[in-house]
Design a protein around this nucleic acid. Structure first.
Lengths: 366, 366
DNA sequence: GCACACTCTGACTACGTTGTCATAGCGTCC
DNA sequence: GGACGCTATGACAACGTAGTCAGAGTGTGC
C-alpha cells in the first residue's frame, strides 16, 4: 500500500476502495460480525438490525469478497470443468447443462479446455484448475490418453465414464447409458429386417465411443448377427464422409449405426454420391439428435440423450462428495439408467428386398 | 478451527491440512517470504535457496492458495463469460476460443449462462459473476433486452457488439465484422445475377443479427435492388423451416441470405418440400460454416468467421483494460476488420433464366 | 426471585498470502 | 577506506471475512 490509507475516512468508504463489511458496519452502526451474519442469512439477528444492514449494504453497493471468504472457509464454491474444447453439439450441451446445475447449487463454473491430441493433456488442465482453487472437477469427455492420470485423491472428481487414474473419492458416473442407447439403435435396425448392422464408431480413445461400440456389439451378438468390420471416425462430418466412401462399395451393407449425427451427415453424403440412396438402399441411424437432424435429407433417425438430467444427477453426486454428505454408504443412488430415446425419422427403413411400400413419405418432418 | 492445530507439528505439515508457504519455508529452512519470492519468480533469490525451496515445495505438493493471493492483491486473475447458453456452433466456438486465449493470458475462465428469454437476464449473470470475484467480463452474445443494463463502470467489460448500458471503461468490440460479412454474402448473390436477395434474419434482439441485416440492406441499397420484406427466425433449423415454408410460395424469390447455417438447413428443406430445388430454383447462402456445411445436400455456400483471431484480439483489449495498460489513448488498435470468408459451395448459383449449364455438378465437395 | 434457556450482539483472532521496510553482506568507485 | 549501490533475506503488517467465545438482554418455569 503506497499511502497508509487516508486516515480513517468518514462513514462511507471513499478513496475508490471497494466497500467491505467494515464499511457497511460503520454506516449501519453495528459490528462487522453482525454484517457478516446478515449477509450469510444466519439466525439470531433482529429484523430491525437486519434491515438497517441490508440498506447500508445496498447504499454502498457492497459485494462480498469471495477471496477473503474462501481464505477462511477453505472452500471456493467453485467447480472446474475439463473439456476437450470442441464445439460439437454433445459436449457443448453437456457444458451448458452442467453450468446451469452448478450455478443452481451455488457454485461457480470454471472451464479449462485441452486441445485434442495436442501436448496439452487432461492432467495439465486439472493441474491448472487446482491452481485456480476449486472444490471439485468434472471431466465431461473422458479420453484414454495412454498414460494413467495422477489425480490428487483428495479432490472430488466426476467423470462421465471410467478413466485410468480415478479411484478413492473420485466419482465415476456413467451418465447417459451409451451401451444401452447403442443397443437400442442397433436393435431398431435389426428389427427393420436388416441381416446385420455396420458401425461407424467414434475415436476409441473416448469412453463414450467405446460404450457405443460395446452396445452395438452386444445387440449383434444377442441377435446372432455377424458383426461386420468396425469403422472408426473422429466425430467430424469429414470422417463420416471418408468412412462412407469406403463402405459404399460393399453391396451387402444395408444398415449403419453411426456414433454421432455429424458423422452420419458425412456418411449419407458419401453414400448418395456413390449412388446409394438413404434409406432406400442403406439405412442410417445417428446419435445425439442435433437440432438440424429433423431437417436433413432425409430427416435423420437418431438417439437423443437427456443432458439436463444427466448433468443434474452427476453434479449432485459430485457435490455430495464435496460436502462430505455421502458418508453413509447406503445412500448411494448411483443411477446410470438415463435411457436415450430413439427418435424415428426417415433415414432408417426396412431393407429394399422385403419392403412393401416402395418409398416412405418424405413430407412429414419430425 | 475446532482443535487449536496440533501444537506446531514437525517440518512437514501433518493433520491433513493443505501445506502453505509456511510449511515449505520450515522444510527448506528459510522464511515464508522467501518462499513467496521463489514461487512468484521474483529476483534477488540465490540459486542455492531457490532450488532448496522448489524441492521442498515439490516434496510437500505445495499449491499456491489463490484466495489468499487474491485477497491481498485485489485481483483474481479471472475472467467471467456471459453466454446465452445455447449449444449452437457459433457461440460454442467463441466460448472455446476465448477460453484458450484467457488461459494463455494466465487468467481463469468462469462461465455464467442466461436462459434465453427467461427471467434470468444478462444483468443477473453479471451480478453473479461479480459476486464470484472476477477482473473482467466478456459478453459474447449481446442481446438487447429492452431494459438498459446497469453495469458497474469500474468493471472492464468486453462486448461483441454494442449494448445499451455500456460506457466508460467498457470495451465494445465489433469482433468479426458482421455488416461486412453480410454484405459480401449478399453481393455474391447479386453478382450471380439475382435481381434481389431475400434475408432470413436472426432474432433482432441480437446485435449480431442486426449487423447481418444491416450489411444485407446496404448491399441491396448500393446495388439499387429492391429490398424484399424481412423474415426473422430464432437461429434454429425449425425457424428456418417455418420461414422457408412461408417464402416458398413467392415465385419471385430466387435468392436468400440466411443469417446462420442452421436456419439455412431448415430453409432448404422447406423449399425442397415445396418443390423448389436449391440452387436450381432458389439460391441459399448461410452463415458460420458449421462443420457439416460441406456435406449437406447441396453443400452449403456460407460465410466463415475466424473465431480464434476475434477472441484473441478482443481478449487482448479486455486485459489491457484490466491491467490499465491502455492509458495512452493513442495506442488503441481497435481492429474491427476481421473479415469473414465467403466459402463457395453449391447452394448458390445463377438464377435459372440466365444460366448456361442447366445444373452445377453435385459431385464436388468443399 | 432464582436458575436456566434462548436470543442477539460484539470483540478478538486466524486464514495464507503479498507489500513495505529494515538489515546484512559484498563489491566498486574515487 | 568510507560512501554507495546492489544482492539477498527476513520481520511485520495488512487484506476482508468467518469462527469462537463472552456477555447482555429477555423471557419462562418453579
Amino acid at each position: 500500500m503506497p499511502q497508509p490509507r487516508p486516515v480513517d475516512d468518514a462513514a462511507t468508504a471513499q478513496g475508490g476502495r471497494r466497500p467491505g463489511m467494515t464499511d457497511v458496519a460503520r454506516l449501519a452502526g453495528v459490528s462487522q460480525k453482525t454484517v457478516s451474519r446478515v449477509i450469510n442469512g444466519e439466525r439470531y439477528v433482529s429484523d430491525n438490525i437486519r434491515q438497517r444492514v441490508l440498506r447500508a449494504a445496498q447504499q454502498l453497493g457492497y459485494r462480498r469478497n469471495t477471496a477473503a471468504r474462501a481464505l477462511i472457509t477453505g472452500r471456493f464454491r467453485r467447480i472446474g470443468f475439463v473439456s476437450l474444447g470442441t464445439a460439437d453439439y454433445g459436449p457443448a450441451s453437456l457444458l451448458i447443462a452442467l453450468e446451469r446445475a452448478t450455478r443452481a447449487a451455488g457454485f461457480s463454473f470454471t472451464v479449462a479446455t485441452t486441445l485434442e491430441g495436442g501436448h496439452d493433456k487432461i492432467s495439465d488442465a486439472i493441474r491448472w484448475l487446482l491452481e485456480q482453487g476449486i472444490d471439485g472437477i468434472v471431466i465431461s469427455e473422458p479420453v484414454d490418453e495412454g498414460e494413467k492420470l495422477e489425480i490428487d485423491p483428495g479432490v472430488p472428481v466426476l467423470s462421465f465414464g471410467k478413466l485410468p487414474g480415478l479411484s478413492g473419492s473420485h466419482v465415476v458416473f456413467g451418465g447417459a447409458d451409451g451401451v444401452a442407447a447403442a443397443r437400442t439403435a442397433t436393435e431398431h435396425l435389426l428389427e427393420l429386417g436388416h441381416d446385420t448392422v455396420w458401425h461407424l464408431a467414434g475415436p476409441q480413445r473416448w469412453w463414450a465411443a467405446r460404450d457405443r461400440r460395446e452396445g452395438w456389439r452386444r445387440a449383434l451378438d444377442d441377435a446372432g448377427a455377424t458383426p461386420p468390420p468396425l469403422a472408426e471416425g473422429d466425430w467430424s462430418p469429414a470422417s463420416g464422409y471418408k468412412a462412407g466412401t469406403a463402405l459404399a462399395s460393399d453391396p451387402s451393407m444395408t444398415a449403419v449405426f453411426v456414433a454421432n449425427d455429424e458423422m452420419a451427415i458425412g456418411m449419407i453424403r458419401a453414400l448418395n454420391e456413390a449412388g446409394r440412396a438413404v434409406p432406400d438402399d442403406v439405412s442410417v441411424i445417428g446419435f445425439d439428435d442435433i437440432p438440424s437432424a429433423a431437417y436433413l435429407s432425409p430427416p435423420l433417425t437418431t438417439m437423443r440423450q437427456d443432458f439436463e438430467a444427466v448433468a443434474a444427477h452427476g453434479l449432485d453426486l459430485l457435490i455430495q462428495q464435496i460436502e462430505g454428505t455421502s458418508a453413509e454408504p447406503d445412500s448411494k443412488p448411483l443411477r446410470t439408467d438415463f435411457p436415450a430415446d430413439l427418435i424415428v425419422r426417415q433415414s432408417a427403413a426396412a431393407p429394399s428386398h422385403d419392403r412393401r411400400n416402395d418409398a416412405p413419405s418424405r413430407k412429414e418432418v419430425q
